[in-house]
Design a protein around this nucleic acid. Structure first.
Lengths: 221, 221
DNA sequence: TGTTGTGAAGGCGTTCACAGCC
DNA sequence: GGCTGTGAACGCCTTCACAACA
């Protein structure tokens, strides 16, 4: 039995707990209650306890959780106790920013190859790495043991690249292109879609606008 | 009555429908069924119809939806039929990438001011805009009528900046710092947290790893 | 006939509330 | 006494299934 039944929301909250635990550790706190953790993470204490309960029992009744112990447990649960070899496709604005993004390496993701098809980028360097043409994609992925692909290309190219990533056997894809991708079940896919966040922010602001000005654009019910 | 009861998931799906409708339009399709839209968006047809039903009735029974009409309706719903004035805080890797990110302007978000506190960045230019020190934040926001703030700073500074943004009256915040922020109800907040996506990808891969190797790190149930 | 729009049913995640334990 | 761990209740979102209608 595996832990597929753990919801995505739970996993995402674990990430937040981990950051809070990291902070608490730096502040010298040795023990924290579900209540204390919850306040900093912006959730309820019951939620914290329920989330953790899916993976084991880490606390002591009447006392709380050892910060250091819980942090290390959560790291393990999230699979952050090992490193992954990453191939980056797209060396434009977003790709370059990702390459320089320290969080990436800090979480155990090492970019070991960069690809782009723009003639003026091929052969250029990103850090120590030479930017390769997509023709070399499959060969270089095999040579360097790439396990995870990051897509930072225009939306129109994203699905074709995801297909190649799946075909060459990559196990996970992090997609930054503003497009819904379809991949085989064997490939884990996560998407960072700024367009969606922008648009959902725009929606919230537009709603607010209506309230202020009393406009009614949609059926009142 | 407003549309606060519309779930966030519905709004996020509307964003996807909008991109699909845009594609369909470019492909010359005049009409699309909920089924057709659903397939491209990766959801069910019932979901599409239900999502749209919160805002009105846009289709014709027995026929489907006019692509152009629906696209324009969804644009309106998402508040993408106007432009917003944006202030960007943080001109490092992510801030610069955002500045150059075309989707931003395309969706109606115009960056009209850039702030950073690093001595070597103040006074430099990002596009046409001079990078200003945070001391000027409130004044420049008022002068230029900034309505939305974007946070692209290290995590440790993010909350303090969010506080200043709320205090000066910004109505929305888009946060790229990997930290949970707390803002007044009057301020709309959206977060793009790459660390969370990375970690949830890591979790999925670690689960997969266990399946392959038969390891059991968590209580089997 | 074909497809929408929508009440009702179902499923899933969150919250409650308390037994169990330190 | 205090706090965790968890079954049960709750509420929300999704899916179903069909009446309404072009």
């Amino acid at each position: 039995m595996s832990f597929d039944h753990v919801s995505d929301s739970t996993v995402r909250r674990l990430s937040n707990y981990l950051r809070v635990l990291d902070e608490l550790g730096k502040e010298g706190e040795a023990v924290v209650s579900s209540q204390g953790l919850a306040e900093r993470a912006g959730v309820t204490s019951a939620q914290v306890r329920k989330d953790l309960s899916y993976f084991g029992t880490f606390g002591r009744r009447g006392r709380g959780y050892e910060v250091a112990v819980l942090e290390s447990e959560v790291r393990g649960i999230l699979g952050l106790d090992r490193r992954w070899r990453v191939g980056l496709v797209g060396a434009g604005n977003i790709g370059s920013a990702l390459f320089a993004y320290k969080e990436f390496a800090r979480q155990g993701f090492d970019i070991v190859a960069v690809f782009d098809d723009a003639a003026d980028r091929i052969g250029a360097k990103l850090g120590e790495l030479e930017i390769r043409p997509m023709d070399d994609f499959e060969r270089v992925c095999r040579e360097r043991g790439v396990e995870i692909g990051v897509i930072a290309t225009p939306a129109k190219d994203a699905q074709a690249i995801a297909d190649r990533m799946a075909r060459v056997g990559l196990r996970g894809i992090l997609n930054f292109a503003p497009r819904k991708l379809f991949v085989p079940d064997a490939v884990a896919l996560r998407t960072v879609n700024m367009a969606i966040e922008l648009e959902s922010l725009s929606f919230a602001l537009a709603q607010d606008e209506e309230k202020r000005h009393g406009r009614r654009r949609f059926p009142a019910g």
